[in-house]
């Protein structure tokens, strides 16, 4: 199954909104760090429902925000959630970005980068479309140190890239991006039940759930284009 087919199906049965709710706990903290100047152009890679780009428009006065997704149904849903004339959506592939060189000020990506068929090349494309000094905020919950995420691959028919912290930094550098920051952003909002309620449907022990959300959380790697 292709990325397009998988996520068209997600969009059609409304799972785009569920993704948004789950991601927001940590995404909002990462979004707050993106150094957007009023009027700048933002690209949201793998935008899904498009919530992140719209948040940057509303909170940081971004000039134009474009969401790119490989699944046409996702972009259709995203477009239906806003009538902001400065927000637009594009169907496209991470490995062949349809944007001109140096045309974007900042790129955001939450929980989507690892679906790239050729992630090293995607980073080269990111470096190409970013203007000098532009940033790439890449946030993932699926990564090597987060052992609790490893099983996710079993539930999805698209091949996922599982790098560790060092591999992310190395790949950014290999693509010509400077690594400005790397951080784990804990999810302090998800409700973790009392000890007596474990095991739950999803978790054997409370300690595992605490590690997954409160300690590991979202891995954020920030690249800066030269």
């Amino acid at each position: 199954m292709s990325v397009r087919e998988e996520f068209d199906a997600w969009a059609t049965d409304g799972r785009d909104k569920g993704m948004e709710e789950r991601h927001w706990h940590t995404a909002k903290h990462a979004l707050a760090r993106v150094p957007v100047e009023p009027g700048e152009t933002i690209l949201d890679l793998g935008c899904g429902s498009g919530y992140a780009g719209r948040a940057l428009r509303e909170t940081k006065d971004a000039g134009r925000v474009y969401g790119l997704d490989g699944a046409p149904e996702m972009t259709r849903n995203a477009a239906s959630y806003t009538d902001d004339p400065n927000v637009g959506y594009v169907v496209g592939d991470f490995d062949s970005l349809p944007f001109a060189d140096d045309s974007i000020d900042h790129i955001w990506s939450m929980e989507s980068f690892y679906y790239a068929a050729d992630p090293e090349h995607t980073l080269e494309e990111v470096a190409r479309v970013l203007r000098p000094g532009g940033t790439f905020y890449c946030a993932v919950n699926y990564y090597e140190e987060n052992v609790h995420s490893h099983e996710w691959q079993e539930f999805i028919a698209v091949e996922m890239t599982r790098w560790d912290r060092e591999q992310y930094r190395e790949a950014f550098r290999d693509a010509g991006l400077y690594v400005a920051e790397q951080d784990n952003i804990p999810d302090r909002e998800i409700t973790i039940p009392a000890e007596a309620e474990f095991p739950t449907d999803d978790w054997d022990t409370r300690a595992e759930m605490v590690e997954r959300y409160r300690e590991l959380g979202t891995l954020l790697t920030v690249g800066v284009a030269p």
């Binding site: 397009r4 087919e5 046409p72 594009v90 169907v91 349809p98």
Partner: peptide, 20 residues
């Protein structure tokens, strides 16, 4: 050639556009 459908441009490489 890349189609614009429902106001959204589809700029997938042609070999990934199958079924659209």
């Amino acid at each position: 050639r890349y189609p614009i459908e429902d106001g959204i441009p589809n700029l997938l490489p042609p070999d990934m556009r199958e079924g659209t």
